[in-house]
């Protein structure tokens, strides 16, 4: 086999690969391997490498089609709940760590670059660079999962779980993210809470919340800046769970259901991607890929870009709610 390898394949610096040599090489490989006119990586039912490659490419695109529709169910659920209960999403987004989300976005984008680069390396038979790019892709994917792990751990710790397990340890107005954005509203919510807890003056609180009611007691009518963020987040007002004191919106847990479902499913895809890249990295290290046979790298890169694509939408939808 090794005799048949044509050294002319490897592109020298600043020198384009001569195409005829590629074909010549295929002929050699074919005769050695099978005596069938096929190359070592050409399956028996394909006539040419081009046919095999195109078939695989069409196959992976169809697979991506199914992936897009697979995720669409979750996007549909997201849109329906966000449209009907915007306060839940406003409430919940204060609990998410935008910095971590942004880091993860960048990490995935870089891994997308290295995946695309790996395809190029495979096409040009640059074995070491190919292995390097695959390694970086895997490293980025692992970084993504580690960041995700810390995010999840934090959520679990804070009781931000889907369904009946949802028991947030902190109220939304106690969060730094909320305080930083709406200091007056946070202060006002605190005030209302104290009023409700210590004085038991429920009517005063209810009056303060309902702007149409006359203000009773010493309590002052709140300003727009104090009230609006709380109303929008469902802390007070008609969407709130508890109408007598600042609380959280009804069914706030649904956001975290969707959050965990979407990011979890995406995470599973990342894990699957890591598995695929490790396998391809091993094969690349053995030098199995070259101009005639780089399909697996190309297809996996396409899959990887789709995983990136899903995250490109998840990031603003989950982390960047205004």
């Amino acid at each position: 086999m090794s005799e048949s390898i044509s050294p002319a394949i490897e592109p020298k610096p600043g020198h384009r690969v001569p195409a005829p040599a590629v074909h010549e090489d295929a002929d050699h490989g074919g005769h050695d391997e099978h005596g069938h006119g096929a190359g070592p990586h050409l399956a028996h039912h394909f006539d040419t490498y081009q046919q095999q490659f195109d078939a695989g490419k069409l196959g992976i695109w169809l697979f991506l089609l199914t992936e897009v529709l697979f995720f669409s169910g979750l996007f549909c659920a997201y849109t329906v709940y966000r449209g009907m209960h915007p306060e839940v999403f406003v409430y919940a987004h204060y609990f998410l760590n935008t910095t971590m989300g942004a880091i993860n976005t960048c990490v995935l984008l870089v891994s997308s670059l290295t995946a695309a680069w790996a395809v190029r390396n495979a096409q040009l038979a640059q074995r070491k660079l190919l292995v390097l790019n695959i390694a970086i892709t895997i490293a980025c994917a692992c970084t993504f999962m580690v960041v995700k792990f810390f995010e999840y751990q934090h959520k679990f710790h804070d009781g931000l779980l889907p369904g009946p397990a949802f028991h947030p340890t902190e109220q939304v107005w106690e969060l730094d993210a909320f305080k930083k954005k709406h200091p007056e509203a946070a202060e006002y919510a605190e005030k209302l809470t104290q009023l409700a807890e210590h004085k038991g003056d429920v009517s005063a609180v209810a009056g303060a919340i309902d702007l149409t009611r006359p203000v009773t007691g010493k309590f002052e009518r709140p300003t727009e800046a104090q009230l609006e963020p709380l109303l929008k987040a469902g802390v007070i007002g008609p969407a709130a769970e508890d109408t007598t004191r600042p609380s959280k919106p009804r069914n706030a847990h649904v956001f975290f259901s969707i959050y965990f479902f979407m990011t979890g499913l995406h995470g599973i895809h990342v894990l699957a991607g890591i598995g695929v890249w490790v396998w391809l990295g091993i094969r690349a290290n053995k030098g199995q890929f070259g101009p005639k046979y780089f399909g697996p790298i190309d297809y996996s890169a396409l899959y990887w870009h789709l995983v990136d694509l899903v995250w490109i939408y998840l990031f603003p939808l989950l982390y960047l709610i205004h």
């Binding site: 044509s6 020298k12 610096p13 040009l124 070491k128 030098g287």
Partner: peptide, 26 residues
């Protein structure tokens, strides 16, 4: 054993140390 990718080490190295040049031209 691949059809082409496993090159003599020396050649492999020479192209990889200057990856940006070859592609540009390409």
């Amino acid at each position: 054993t691949p059809q082409n990718a496993e090159q003599p080490k020396s050649m492999q190295g020479s192209s990889e140390e200057t990856p940006t040049i070859a592609p540009e031209d390409d």
